[in-house]
């Protein structure tokens, strides 16, 4: 199932911004995401929606090469990841970060500039100015020197958003940026995401809250271990599609996954 590209006037398809082709992902030997085909061809706010354990985060990690693909390919504007890395900004899940680590909010945002600095160049005045600027854009200029663990959950997510901004990317991939965040911070984060869309960037957000999904995203993909549906939000978030995503129909996929992992057969 693809969120198909609109053919241009000339009749040839534009190169999609992100293209998952038959992507299957496994943790160890256990497949957790099966045969995903997904095409996102224009800048927009794109939501990846599904229940817990559906493989939403895994899809992002697979796109970024953080978990290996068992099968399939991911291309960014027609390029493989290795060539496209510098065009992608990533905000990882809260749990993957050690919040007691001795870095300030400013230090974290500065990390966003490391990709373009290469391996050995040290960040200079230009990078510092950019980091300060990005912190200001998420409204956190006044806590720049605070240790990251001493900020509220919403502030921490905004710091990570600022880091992604500092990457000056064309494509932003955000893993649950609204998790553990108060309503006010959610609005602020959404405003920044909307401004990125207005600036012609693609913003892909893993999200779990159906109520806000309908109002925030232009397009969504419903995922539960496989792609259920993808396309404009209004046409995808139908009762029928939601039932197919949230009713646990994929028990068979889980069982087969476990059987693969254990080199056994399903009972």
């Amino acid at each position: 199932m693809t969120d198909s590209a609109t053919p241009s006037a000339a009749g040839d398809r534009p190169v999609p911004l992100v293209e998952f082709h038959d992507v299957t992902v496994a943790y160890g030997r256990r497949p957790v995401l099966w045969n995903v085909d997904l095409v996102i061809d224009a800048p927009c706010l794109f939501g990846i929606i599904g229940p817990n354990g559906a493989g939403k985060s895994t899809l992002l990690k697979a796109a970024l090469g953080l978990v290996p693909l068992v099968g399939g390919t991911v291309r960014f504007a027609g390029e493989p990841l290795a060539r496209a890395r510098h065009t992608i900004g990533y905000v990882p899940q809260r749990e993957s970060v050690d919040w007691d680590f001795p870095v300030s909010a400013f230090d974290v945002v500065l990390m966003g500039t490391y990709g373009r600095l290469g391996w050995f160049r040290r960040p200079g005045p230009a990078e510092r100015a950019s980091a300060r600027d990005c912190l200001a854009r998420v409204g956190l200029a006044d806590v720049a020197d605070r240790q990251i663990g001493r900020l509220s959950g919403g502030q921490q997510q905004r710091v990570f958003l600022a880091r992604a901004l500092a990457q000056e990317a064309a494509i932003y991939l955000l893993d649950e940026p609204m998790a553990g965040v108060d309503a006010r911070s959610q609005e602020q984060i959404f405003d920044v995401l909307a401004s990125l869309r207005a600036a012609g960037r693609l913003v892909v957000v893993v999200h779990h809250d159906l109520r806000t999904a309908a109002e925030w995203f232009d397009r969504v993909a419903l995922i539960d271990m496989r792609l259920v549906a993808a396309g404009p939000t209004a046409t995808v978030l139908t009762p029928d599609n939601l039932r197919r995503t949230y009713s646990g129909q994929v028990e068979l996929l889980r069982e087969v996954g476990l059987a693969v992992a254990e080199r056994g057969r399903t009972s």
């Binding site: 990690k61 970024l64 510098h86 990882p92 993957s96 970060v97 391996w119």
Partner: peptide, 21 residues
């Protein structure tokens, strides 16, 4: 020269790998 790579990798390994560290 590699301090920034150490900081990034230690603090946020996934983010660092995604950024090409």
């Amino acid at each position: 020269p590699t301090w920034k790579l150490q900081v990034f990798s230690a603090f946020d390994p996934d983010g660092a790998r995604a950024a090409g560290v």
